[in-house]
Design a protein around this nucleic acid. Structure first.
Lengths: 239, 239
DNA sequence: CATTGGTTATACGTCATACATTTAACCTAA
DNA sequence: TTAGGTTAAATGTATGACGTATAACCAATG
């Protein structure tokens, strides 16, 4: 007996979107390149403008392209970064599929090792950038700038790890925790007093991986405690 | 002197999409719920069908809703899972923003600790499921089934960690590495001989966290080596 | 009574056209 | 020279018509 396969109906817009996406991922269009205009795509795919537009809109929603209007407008391929990851995490978090303690725990598990890797790789230029960032943490007390300033060191260390996957994960965590901190708006010296990063920066620059890992762990243990407390206060106030 | 802020032009479709997204994330619509139909949304937002459709399409592309056609059709809110994360990773990988060695390294950094956490939490039911999965790894040699079977233990351990963020990360890594393995299609016993998980499963069930961590690390060290070799062979053959 | 097959209602999918809006570049006159 | 208008190219929105998919209802037939 012959086996029949069910017909899978595919929407024209999905098909077009898929082909465009493949073209981008395969390197046919690189970051910054402009996809053909709507009119051209109509010709190429022989479909209506509706279909073309929905396909492009899907790509935009997926974060692959950026649509600009006007004379020099069109769909431009974006530089893919960790932001898509972080957006996905943000949505999961907002839907209650992730909790703050889980994020803190994950961070404590990953970032100390990332610090160790960073210490192994640290170049003089990176050392300078690290010190620079660490010395500017006090430039602002206003939200959300203060969050950005005081997490800069973490971002740099993540980049220094040399592993772009771990870098993306850590940055996503930083964005999420930063968003929450900005929402709670605790006094800066309550959530993150000045100087907490000094020993970490020292260790990384000294290429002392073991110490960098240990100090990062200690710092996160302390910070996470503060963050949880801040969250409790916030909850009480807004109950 | 007064400071003027640039006018931010927002597209109607983006605005509608954002409002719908917020409604979903805030819990106004839960997983499985149906958003209003296009006609109703036209009434609610007082915009054209074009705008409504593009908004919904964006949500679909973002993985938040699933659109079904027909009499009982409409946009239904999806259960958010790690799949969005894994899709994002997949795209980064396909665009060359992530390499196989980086993924392997990240896995070696995370999964052993996840195994330790799983060992801490292991319940009798989970122990049984783990043994069950481990005993069925030989049920198929055909791709892609064999990949799924031989990675099942890793999926279960990730779930047992009790940390949904780490679970999502590990699963995303498993999907990615699984995809690559399926692409290379090496002989099953070359990439992953039977029995490699036995000691890990034993340790987890015995609630021996330290041993689970160590055995997982050793296993990954071995497996990653095999995977890299398989990739080299594949590259040579398809050069 | 049950099953088959047709009908209908509903909602999404696609097409076509017209017009609005945005933006850069060009042009023109004071 | 420059302010200001014009034009062209591209996306954004509106509208109406028709196509397609799907479930539910219904009716005829055995």
């Amino acid at each position: 007996m012959h086996i029949f396969k069910p017909i899978k109906q595919i929407r024209a817009s999905s098909e077009v979107g898929q082909q465009l996406k493949n073209a981008i991922l395969d390197g046919g269009y690189k970051a910054g390149d402009k996809l053909p205009s709507e009119r051209e795509l109509i010709e190429l795919f022989q479909v209506s403008r509706t279909v073309v537009r929905e396909a492009i809109k899907s790509l935009e929603a997926g974060g692959l392209v950026e649509i600009r209007q006007g004379a020099t407008g069109g769909a431009f391929v974006k530089h893919l970064t960790f932001e898509r990851l972080s957006d996905a995490c943000q949505d999961l978090f907002l839907m209650g599929k992730l909790s703050l303690p889980e994020l803190c725990q994950a961070r404590m598990l990953i970032e100390p090792q990332v610090a160790r890797m960073a210490a192994k790789n640290c170049t003089p230029e990176q050392a300078k950038a690290l010190q620079e960032a660490n010395s500017h943490e006090n430039d602002s007390f206003a939200y959300p700038e203060t969050v950005m300033l005081r997490s800069q060191v973490h971002y740099l260390i993540a980049e220094m790890s040399g592993n772009r996957f771990l870098e993306a994960i850590v940055k996503s965590l930083l964005v999420l925790l930063g968003n929450q901190t900005t929402k709670f708006q605790p006094p800066t010296d309550e959530i993150h007093p000045l100087g907490l990063h000094d020993v970490i920066v020292e260790a990384v620059i000294a290429k002392d991986g073991a110490k960098a890992e240990a100090e990062m762990f200690a710092h996160l243990e302390d910070f996470n405690q503060r963050l949880i407390e801040v969250e409790c206060k916030y909850m009480d106030k807004h109950a």
